[in-house]
């Protein structure tokens, strides 16, 4: 599996993602700068966490208009898989590659701690290695992770099995509608999630619950 990690000014989880990808797939991902207008031929593109463009205007708004995102969008339409983590999820909603918006956390505070999640949907290349209903723990670190969409969109996401991760009962850290932590696009090749699976891929970092995301991708994409 060949992968690329997009680096925006003020991305700060790009290297975490690169380390996790290299450990699990055995291949170093290609790091792609935001001003580039093309993404190399890869099977997976990761949009990492961070504070791209200083979160100016709205989180992910500037990154959403960058050269590289035009290329990422085109690739995703051709079936290339895209994983947006935290700020990457915000960028995906800003480009309308995923529906809804990530608003300021309901309690107005930045949250940085491990959070329990339920793997709701395993019919995706991102979650195929998890057992349905599995409880996992990923860290979150965000101030704007409050997932908001209209009721019709939420019903459609749930009805189509596109809500893949939910915050476990009583663990919703940001007020997200229906405890949503991660969603797929309609074609199921784009996943955006607020928690950080790439930060729990090595026992030295306190857990390995996130490995299955990358192992599933490796298994599915070769």
């Amino acid at each position: 599996m060949k992968s690329a990690v997009v680096v925006f000014p003020a991305s700060n989880c790009d290297r975490d993602a690169a380390v996790a990808l290299e450990q699990i797939t055995g291949h170093k991902p290609i790091m792609v700068w935001h001003a580039d207008s093309d993404v190399p031929d890869v099977d997976l593109i990761v949009l990492p966490g961070g504070f791209s463009y200083g979160d100016y205007l709205r989180c992910g708004a500037m990154a959403g208009q960058s050269n590289i995102m035009r290329a990422v969008k085109e690739k995703s339409e051709k079936g290339v898989h895209v994983l947006g983590i935290c700020n990457g999820f915000q960028v995906l909603t800003e480009t309308h590659m995923l529906p809804g918006v990530l608003m300021k956390n309901a309690q107005l505070k930045f949250v940085c701690r491990p959070v329990g999640l339920t793997v709701v949907e395993t019919e995706s290349v991102f979650t195929r290695k998890y057992a349905a209903g599995a409880h996992v723990e990923f860290p979150v670190a965000h101030g704007e992770g409050n997932y908001v969409a209209d009721a019709e969109t939420l019903d459609r996401l749930e009805g189509d099995g596109r809500v893949v991760f939910k915050y476990a009962a009583g663990e919703n850290p940001n007020g997200s509608a229906r405890d949503i932590a991660g969603i797929l696009n309609e074609k199921r090749n784009v996943l955006g999630l607020m928690p950080h699976p790439e930060r729990v891929c090595d026992p030295l970092l306190g857990g390995t619950d996130g490995r299955a995301v990358f192992e599933g991708l490796l298994e599915a994409l070769g």
Binding site: L57, R58, A61, Q65, T93, E94, P99, G100, V101, M103, V148, A149
Partner: peptide
């Protein structure tokens, strides 16, 4: 529509 507002919200 392109940048200044996120018309979803």
């Amino acid at each position: 529509e392109k940048l200044l507002a996120n018309t979803v919200i």
